[in-house]
């Protein structure tokens, strides 16, 4: 059965971000001028103005920042998915990323709970970074 949920459009920096995910590596831009990490990808560092950056590998570790349980789907592609739980993870590097958990029912979620990244190869082209409980 084909995958029917929305997928990112692979272009520009987004192609690079998800390209690393396909290799099962979570990477964010890090400014080579001041060291600031950033997500989502940008052209310049909003902290120091530098155009220079690298895709640096994240530890993959973070904590649960917040979540919502979508009981009533508000998009046709998720009509059969509810209830599902979009979540925001605060990564060790200081950036936050929207994702979902693969192993934790929503009634067991706790804010600040430690989590780590896993990779879900949803199509041959696209891998989404998701999260599971960490020790």
């Amino acid at each position: 059965m084909s995958y029917t949920k929305p997928l990112p459009t692979l272009a520009g920096h987004t192609e690079d971000f998800y390209g690393w995910c396909k290799k099962h590596e979570l990477r964010f831009q890090q400014c080579t001028g001041c060291g600031a990490w950033r997500h989502v990808p940008r052209e310049l560092c909003a902290e120091c103005g530098s155009w220079d950056w690298e895709w640096m590998r994240s530890s993959g570790r973070g904590t649960v920042f917040t979540w919502t349980v979508a009981e009533r789907p508000l998009h046709p592609a998720f009509a059969d998915a509810a209830p599902y739980t979009p979540i925001v993870i605060a990564m060790e590097e200081g950036v936050r990323i929207v994702s979902e958990m693969v192993d934790c029912p929503h009634d067991q979620l706790v804010i600040d709970m430690p989590v780590e990244v896993v990779f879900d190869d949803v199509t041959p082209e696209i891998t989404l970074p998701k999260f599971r409980r960490a020790g």
Partner: peptide, 28 residues
């Protein structure tokens, strides 16, 4: 394109969902 590429794939699709995330954090 940010919503399309970084929110929608995870089912974050509509305004009440964006803001519910902030509300839960405030409650905590």
């Amino acid at each position: 394109t940010i919503a399309r590429d970084y929110y929608l794939p995870f089912g974050l699709t509509a305004p009440p969902q964006w803001y519910a995330l902030i509300a839960r954090r405030h409650m905590h």
